[in-house]
Design a protein around this nucleic acid. Structure first.
Lengths: 200, 200
DNA sequence: CCTATGGTGTTAGAAGTTCTTACTTAGTTA
DNA sequence: TAACTAAGTAAGAACTTCTAACACCATAGG
């Protein structure tokens, strides 16, 4: 955990990465909108101008954090899937549960990722890749090898549901609504109800 | 539309209200986090310190806007319900559709309302009142006169769905997922699938 | 009538923010 | 080893939130 800085005494050596992790922590602690570049710089032990060597912009830094988030989410989905037979409804439920659990474990990051204010080609690509894991499972579930329009049409309501559940739980509305069932159960219910198979 | 200010030439006369509407417009234009009190003051034609006579805080002003939002949403729900036989599934679908349509018509406001960062007893109350309209319909649908735990349990998945759909549509993910069906249809589908009646 | 009081505006300014510019330092490369 | 470049720094412009001290004016009481 020691700073690579010590190597030279002047150049930090790992500032970009360290800024991203500092930012992520701040976003989690105080919310995406209360985050400040200055504070991230302070946390990394550099001047307030230093971050602008690595990120053109405040939002560019936030985008880097969101990008990291999508990477982790994709990984979480993949390992959720790996624990089940591919294409089974158990696998689908596992991905949905992972979605909500990721959001609950990283509420600030999750909100940042879907804030929509800050966008980039690369960020969108990371998001699509993430959603691709879900769609892949649905395709397999339908006995298909490709993600076509029908797969999308069937996957979208499931996404909608876990996305909404994530927000409601993050914001404590699930408590208010007295929904204390475990996430897995709720997602399993929704998946069962929403997933209409074309035929037998 | 003329300024009440002209009455005295010094006191504004309606500043509080005018700040709220200016803020609302700014929130809609640039998003909740890029809004600035200064700009709202400028829009209302007063000094940047004036708003602090009416709102202790930047977030207090945002809360006032969110509060207004919940009022309008409640009204929208009520009139959506009024167009149908109470307790019918058409009435339920109408409320759900109104939810998503409100979000799409006022994306910035909607995000602000559910941002969760800024809270108040009164704001929560306004939110609960709003949700109360939905729950009331569900209670009637189940042939009940009171909103009990079962009503909540059944209503929650519907809320979850329209909440998620609102966010996905606001952020343009529905386009990406090629879900171009009209909101009403999607909500009707979800309601049909998610609303499991206890028995015949 | 006319004066005290409080509500609501003003200006000035402290502290903190984003981001730029010009300078400095330290590794790399000719 | 000299020049180039990458990556820091310090200083500062333009903005923000919010406070403090002052100014105006509506009205309630004497």
């Amino acid at each position: 955990m020691e700073q690579v800085k010590s190597k030279t005494g002047y150049h930090h050596g790992d500032l970009r990465h360290q800024l991203v992790t500092a930012t992520r922590q701040l976003v989690e602690e105080k919310g995406p909108d209360l985050f400040s570049v200055s504070e991230a710089a302070r946390a990394a032990g550099v001047s307030t101008a230093a971050p602008y060597r690595h990120f053109g912009d405040r939002t560019e830094l936030l985008i880097a954090v969101a990008h990291e988030g999508f990477g982790e989410m994709t990984a979480a989905f993949s390992s959720a899937v790996a624990a089940h037979q591919p294409g089974t409804s158990e696998a689908l439920v596992a991905v949905g549960t992972a979605y909500v659990e990721f959001a609950e474990a990283n509420p600030g990051l999750f909100k940042l990722m879907f804030a929509g204010e800050h966008k980039t080609e690369a960020l969108e690509e990371a998001g699509h890749q993430c959603y691709g894991v879900v769609l892949g499972q649905i395709a397999q579930h339908l006995g298909k090898t490709e993600v076509d329009d029908e797969v999308m049409r069937i996957g979208f309501p499931l996404w909608t549901f876990v996305h909404g559940l994530s927000f409601l739980r993050i914001d404590g509305k699930a408590d208010f609504a007295k929904m204390h069932a475990p996430v897995h159960e709720i997602v399993a219910f929704a998946t069962r109800q929403l997933l209409v198979k074309p035929e037998g």
